[in-house]
């Protein structure tokens, strides 16, 4: 496969839909609402918008420029940029490998709970049901369990097969077509969910809790870090996804115009999620005679504890359940597809073999590992630790290091020039300044949170568990990335831009 035959999206709309599909995921629905609530409510909107404009959108432009200029997956793009940078590309790929392994599990849970919603299968105690009956969570202190849970494994294998089927079809017929179908369905379902939530008794109480500003919080640096963190994790930036997708754009594509649409669309969706989720939590608090602070949750607690409880009590709860868990499933599926595509694209570039072959060469072993690690009774603590160490430390570390070398190697000017060659919205000094400042913020996020977890531990898990599946896993990703960058490229296809390769 030569570069001239690299697959492309059929046009800008196809790329934008796929990129929004990747960006809009679990984080938009279950992370943004609670992060906003915890960090000053309405006042949080100010640091959030500042973070979107100064970090999110500038980093999106940067990723697009790297992928589009070098027309390869993350490792090939970095290698073409500077042959010493290839390790960063593989590090990003390795982060996606780990995220893909556990993201599939949550996707499987969401799909299963969509089905459960029809009958409210969780009964009167959704927390007990989720922990003891559905996941049958075991004690990690007794060691990693290989007692597998059928109810988890079945949907887990199913979501892997669906995603691999889509990916095997290719960029346009698979990724683009699936996004073109799933994203409109997701948006319609979610709008219906939000409107339904707004009509629930007590919805205003939830919205008051979410949007009433606590201005004092603006002087707290941790609130600003939370805003940058939310934007950073929500937009799928700096870990290979946007580099890979941009490499499938046609050569004369408008990078910044598309980037602005993707950045604002992602935030629009999560703002809508905040309104829908807190309107629903307001209803739940009212129904139980509690304060919103007593029922507000984020992440797994919101989706699998709070929402089932709410569905039990809401009028037409089954419909709300199907809409909520269906939205979660579709949002997670398009993101999951993009995560696996980073790996497929990288391996395809390196080995120069057919996409369908690479898809199953990569996907089937990953599916097996995913089932072994997360399909057992210790899958939940495993997921929790890997999410913290790979999705937080892994992404922030690879972003910080790769941005630092790009800045230090004075490559921002080259990328800015590439963006301006084809884009409607031109970038210059302010864009470069935003990248430099964001690099510093990432360093602060990495070292402050790293020091905290290093000294205090994480969630009371045993040291051997944290050291093996947390720190050990994070370090192993870098080592494997370095080793992969030492492997020879098949048919030496690395030189694309004259004067860029030594």
């Amino acid at each position: 496969m030569s570069n001239s035959t690299r697959e492309t999206f059929s046009g800008r709309k196809a790329f934008i839909m796929a990129a929004i599909g990747s960006a809009v995921g679990l984080g938009n629905i279950w992370r943004f609402p609670y992060t906003t609530y915890e960090n000053g409510g309405g006042a949080f909107i100010i640091p959030y918008i500042v973070a979107l404009l100064t970090a999110g959108i500038p980093l999106l432009f940067l990723d697009y420029a790297i992928g589009h200029r070098h027309r390869g997956g993350a490792p090939l793009s970095y290698r073409r940029f500077n042959k010493h940078f290839e390790t960063f590309g593989w590090w990003q790929v390795m982060v996606n490998v780990i995220i893909g392994l556990y993201y599939a599990v949550v996707l499987g849970w969401a799909a299963t709970y969509t089905y459960f919603s029809f009958t409210a299968a969780w009964g009167n105690d959704p927390v007990q049901f989720f922990i003891n009956e559905y996941l049958r969570v075991g004690d990690i202190k007794q060691g990693v369990s290989f007692e597998f849970v059928g109810m988890v494994i079945g949907p887990l294998i199913a979501v892997w097969l669906v995603a691999l089927g889509v990916l095997a079809l290719g960029v346009q017929k698979g990724i683009s077509k699936s996004s073109n179908i799933l994203m409109p369905v997701l948006v319609v379902m979610f709008i219906v969910l939000v409107v339904s939530s707004l009509f629930l008794p007590g919805a205003a109480k939830g919205l008051n809790a979410l949007f009433t500003p606590d201005w004092d919080k603006l002087s707290d640096p941790s609130v600003w870090i939370a805003a940058y963190g939310q934007i950073f994790f929500s937009l799928s930036i700096c870990f290979g996804i946007m580099i890979t997708y941009a490499s499938y754009l046609k050569k004369d594509s408008d990078l910044t115009g598309s980037g602005l649409v993707v950045g604002f669309a992602n935030s629009s969706f999560e703002l809508l999620a905040g309104i829908g989720v807190f309107a629903a939590l307001g209803f739940m608090a009212t129904a139980q005679g509690q304060e919103v602070s007593e029922v507000a949750k984020g992440g797994i607690g919101l989706a699998f504890f709070a929402f089932p409880t709410l569905i039990n009590e809401a009028p037409f709860g089954e419909i709300i359940g199907v809409l909520f868990f269906g939205s979660l499933t579709f949002a997670a599926l398009t993101s999951f597809i993009s995560v696996i595509e980073v790996i497929i694209s990288a391996v395809q570039d390196k080995l120069r073999i057919r996409r369908s072959k690479v898809t199953f060469l990569v996907g089937l072993p990953m599916m097996a590992v995913s089932v072994i690690l997360f399909g057992s009774t210790t899958g939940l603590p495993m997921l929790d630790v890997m999410d913290k160490f790979v999705n937080y430390f892994g992404i922030v570390a690879v972003a910080f290091v790769s941005l630092m070398v790009i800045v230090a190697d004075e490559k921002l000017g080259v990328l800015g020039q590439h963006i301006n060659e084809t884009s409607s919205f031109k970038v210059g000094f302010v864009w470069r300044l935003c990248i430099v400042v964001t690099t510093g913020i990432l360093a602060f996020m990495l070292f402050s949170e790293g020091a905290k977890v290093f000294t205090e531990g994480y969630e009371g898990y045993p040291n051997w568990f944290i050291n093996t599946f947390g720190w050990g896993m994070s370090i192993m990703l870098v080592v494997v990335a370095f080793l992969l960058s030492r492997l020879k490229w098949k048919n030496e296809v690395i030189t694309e831009r004259k004067g860029e390769q030594s």
Partner: peptide
């Protein structure tokens, strides 16, 4: 809903959804 919550919700919607609409409208023809 209290006034400050309504104001902040409207501001957030106006800036973020407004940004999305403007960025779509400003996209040059392919």
């Amino acid at each position: 809903m209290n006034t400050s919550a309504i104001v902040m919700m409207v501001i957030a919607l106006a800036i973020i959804w407004g940004g999305l609409i403007i960025s779509i409208v400003k996209l040059p023809k392919e």
